[in-house]
Design a protein around this nucleic acid. Sequence first.
DNA 1: AATTCAAACCATTTTATACCACTAATTTAA
DNA 2: TTAAATTAGTGGTATAAAATGGTTTGAATT
Lengths: 163, 163
Amino acid sequence: MLTIFRGESTHKMDQKGRVSIPADYRRIIIEENAKVGKELDQNTLVIVFGDNRQSHLECYPLTLSREIHENIKSKFPRGTPKREFLDNFFETKSIAVQIDPNGRMLLPQHVRTKAELGSNVCFAGKGESFQMWNPEKYSQRQKELEAMFRDEEIISNPLVLLE
Amino acid sequence: MLTIFRGESTHKMDQKGRVSIPADYRRIIIEENAKVGKELDQNTLVIVFGDNRQSHLECYPLTLSREIHENIKSKFPRGTPKREFLDNFFETKSIAVQIDPNGRMLLPQHVRTKAELGSNVCFAGKGESFQMWNPEKYSQRQKELEAMFRDEEIISNPLVLLE
DNA sequence: AATTCAAACCATTTTATACCACTAATTTAA
DNA sequence: TTAAATTAGTGGTATAAAATGGTTTGAATT
């Protein structure tokens, strides 16, 4: 089984804020969460909505959420500005949601508003996490990404960047 | 594990000073307190209002309150200025409140006054603790935080801070 | 005895969760 | 390769829980 979030897809969100989680993402989340323990948390995922520099939602299993938390704690002493900033970004500006029996999650209103989500939501796998986007914002971001390396370097194949 | 205070929300406070504690925070508090023992203390939480450098309330379960207390005792000998300062900050300028059968806490008048709390209270999860804020003060602080790293470093994603 | 404040109780609104049903797509097995 | 079975995605409804407002009781204070 691949523990890599892959691919892009669009799902419906209803008025109550319910969205189906792509089935393969769901499997990865459950499988990852199993490593952490606690049966109760088994179908939990963490969603970071962050501050105004980000217009999408960043989603990950408890394993990665915990890794980030531990990183923050060990690298930045309590009371320092960076610590406060990071705690705020990754903990205050985030939520934990449950996967319901139908494989959906329920996004609270303030999160939907923050990410400008309407009746359609784009999912994008990003390896160890996945993202949720407003479809327009998403294709906009895609264009930006494509343009980003078009001019300076002529890249026939992005693999060259890995050299 | 899910014992991390997360997210932000706003709750009403009535004239008597009663505020609902976000349900997930409540669960974490109870779960944490269970580690300490004493059935009586099961639904107690500690609120530090501190001195004038802080305009919010810092709230945590008995486990953390105890940990802080032990830390102070072991690191600063009785009679030293630092010891006096810390005792004053974390013990004198704090209260222990109960969670009532409806999931609310009752804030005494002097604490409400100190934190400038009116009919709306902002809750902000901070990992091992959570905070309560006057909504205006809160959004003001948020702006400050966001500005804090905008100019000096170009951060497309705060994760780079973790490298 | 009157006043104040905390605690308990009760009721309503809102929101989240569970439950059920349908369709489409995919997989499995005959 | 088709029919049956399963899984995915979606919508609606019923139920439970959370948030909050109000009233009453009880203890402590003046």
